[in-house]
């Protein structure tokens, strides 16, 4: 039985077109590998120290898709310093992820932290 919160984020996930390489203000990272069936490409549009928009591609199970969409909602509109508060435990708690899916939260956090290092 999947929790309603998780399903709500899974259903909300939409594939917006990702920005072309080199678009000013856009920072992108990939985490995981397509070959393993667990992969995220996360793109943040950052201007004036604020994350204005999040776009992504994701290959993986429903937990991973829901987690990325949750991060999208969390990050959009936040300042970079506020976005730094993102952590795996917070995501696990928010989505009530079972232990074997903690990796979904960690992947998203890894992706965001990599972008933060590029952006700051």
């Amino acid at each position: 039985m999947y929790n309603e919160q998780l399903l709500a984020y899974l259903h909300k996930a939409v594939a917006k077109p990702v920005w072309p390489e080199g678009t000013p203000g856009v920072f992108s990272v990939e985490v995981g590998t397509k070959e393993s069936g667990v992969w995220i490409k996360l793109c943040l549009y950052i201007k004036d120290n604020t994350i204005h928009e999040v776009r992504y591609r994701v290959i993986g199970g429903g937990y991973l898709i829901a987690t990325v969409e949750w991060a999208n909602e969390f990050l959009t509109g936040k300042s970079l310093s506020a976005a730094e508060a993102l952590n795996a435990k917070g995501i696990v708690d928010a989505l009530a992820l079972p232990p074997q899916r903690f990796y979904c939260a960690q992947m998203v956090v890894d992706a965001v932290m990599k972008i933060m290092r590029q952006a700051i």
Binding site: L7, L10, I59, G60, G61, G62, L64, I65
Partner: peptide, 13 residues
Amino acid sequence: QGLNAEALLMSLP
């Protein structure tokens, strides 16, 4: 091919 059955199952309650 290329998708995840669990994601499909969860998305098609």
